[in-house]
Design a protein around this nucleic acid. Structure first.
Lengths: 223, 223
DNA sequence: CGAAGGCTTGAGACCGCTCAAGACCCGTGG
DNA sequence: CCACGGGTCTTGAGCGGTCTCAAGCCTTCG
């Protein structure tokens, strides 16, 4: 258990709460419900009427659309600072996504009614929500563009280039199956695309480790 | 030219501004820039650094991603009440979409800096922005689901069922080419899908007019 | 009446999917 | 340390839905 002081310091660290007064923060802390999720835990699932908006403080969460036979279409990988569960704010609050923790996560949950109050009392909180949602929009539009104008191998190349690298080594942060789904591909096609890029001498793959031999060449195949 | 009183009454009519005080409305009216767009006018285009957030008051706007050779991938058809141009609120404001009026439109434009002030001064405005963005999120997720789990004919059937009908007659509200793009199809495939549904006796098509003979049957092919 | 744009139709090719094995990886327990 | 086992990933073969390219048609409008 953490003391109130420790909690407060912790919150202050998140850019989410930058430029917030001590009083406002105190009030937010009262209505927010901090929670943690273990790897594979569901934050919410399609069909539930979760009435909470969430802020992800640490860890990664996968948003996906369930498909028949336990399959899924991954829509987003969320990172710390992201806001999600926004459908809880809508009148006919029907959740159509699954949200699953991909690792140990810390979250804040706000009841929809409290969100309304929070918006009125803490303008910078409202500001953060709006820019948070806007950021996600941009990301989704880029994904849509990718899926609708690029081939499988191009999408994979693009994804690889976006991953952080140490030296020329990138690491696939999630299961290949999940990444494939996010890119709108079957696992087999994802695998074959990696294989194709390898054959071109652009990368080499060993498990989740990908060595980027030729970033310029990778960029080039995006046309 | 309209008088201030007329303008004010007009604004009050929009659900967007429901429950707003007279003073707050007055202030919003000062910072908002009303504008109208003719059919085919661009509200903004990819690459511009439009610094405005928009609210669509009347008419329809098409959001799309430009593709080579003047082609496009339609992302959303916006209706009155929708909020868009949210990317202008982000730090590195790079617009990646095209926004085009599909008919005579009335809009409100808010400079990004004014939005920030508006959020602080008019909480219900912030509220409206957030729920407006959330609504668009839901719609986009449904589209993603559709594209990733349904066949061409199923997507077309789904789209037809969503259109308003008078009796059993629905009207395609936009060019078939644009609707096809929104559904993630080539125009040819859209045409053939309509043809396929016609052959099944579910609909008949004459130009933009579609007679829905068997809504239940249409629903049924979605499996 | 002619022209332009949008839509439809046809033929063919291809990319990614499906189904089915087999290989690999890695944690677990003997 | 090694063998085991479950899950993940890869590889192969073949199919098929959708795209591409190219005419032709139809409607609209000058």
């Amino acid at each position: 258990m953490q003391t109130a002081i420790e909690l407060e310091r912790k919150w202050f660290d998140f850019p989410m709460f930058a430029g917030i007064s001590r009083a406002q923060l105190g009030w937010l802390m009262e209505v927010a419900r901090p929670l943690s999720a273990a790897r594979h835990d569901w934050v919410f699932r399609r069909g539930e009427n979760s009435s909470c908006l969430f802020i992800l403080l640490s860890g990664h969460v996968k948003l996906s659309i369930p498909v028949e036979r336990g399959l899924e279409k991954v829509v987003e990988f969320l990172a710390p600072g992201d806001v999600f569960g926004e459908s809880s704010l809508l009148p006919g609050h029907a959740v159509i996504l699954d949200a699953q923790a991909l690792e140990e996560c810390e979250l804040l949950a706000f009841e929809a009614q409290d969100v309304q109050a929070a918006i009125a009392r803490v303008p910078s909180f409202a500001q953060q929500l709006i820019t948070g949602l806007s950021r996600r929009f941009e990301a989704i539009f880029k994904d849509i563009e990718s899926v609708s104008v690029r081939s499988a191998a191009q999408r994979v190349a693009e994804y690889l280039l976006r991953q952080p690298r140490v030296g020329n080594l990138a690491k696939l942060p999630f299961h290949k199956r999940a990444i494939a789904s996010k890119l709108g591909l079957q696992p087999e096609t994802f695998s074959r695309s990696l294989q194709h890029l390898t054959a071109e001498g652009l990368i080499s793959v060993r498990g989740a480790k990908v060595v980027i031999h030729d970033p310029v060449g990778l960029q080039a195949i995006l046309v």
